[in-house]
Amino acid sequence: MPDPHSEVQAAVTLRVNGAEHTLSIDPRTTLLDLLRETLHLTGTKKGCDHGQCGACTIHVNGRRVNACLALAVAHDRDEIRTIEGLAEGDRLHPMQAAFLQKDAYQCGYCTAGQIMSAVALLDEPCGPEDADVRELMSGNICRCGAYANIVAAIQQVRGS
């Protein structure tokens, strides 16, 4: 653990949504806090900071990861994608469009994490049933309980 009295900085290059950022950071910084507080990409949310809610789910090299459990310095040159990088210009990713259409949220706070998880799930081995999707989406808590619509949105995209 670094000495909290020192002002150690670490250099890191992050590739976020296609853009490269070379930064000198406090080595204690999590990927989540770096995205939110330094890069101001606040679409990724903090719900627990302990890997227990899924609100901070992003993609690192194409796989879903809890950004709150990742130290930023450990992801030098990794390919990072956040909710802000999902749509192509004005064209929503089909998963975003499906969430909108199916009302797969209420407050919207867990939504970025749900969508990033759901997009990653498309490339994971997941059975065809709703129950399979429910199981693979259970790392993303929706306290508003919009689960039925979340499953419906994901199944719509998987079916298309």
């Binding site: 956040t82 802000e84 999902l86 929503l92 919207g108």
Partner: peptide, 11 residues
């Protein structure tokens, strides 16, 4: 909804 699914809604 569009703001919520794109991460553009500011809490």
């Amino acid at each position: 909804g569009r703001l919520k699914v794109t991460g553009a809604a500011h809490y």
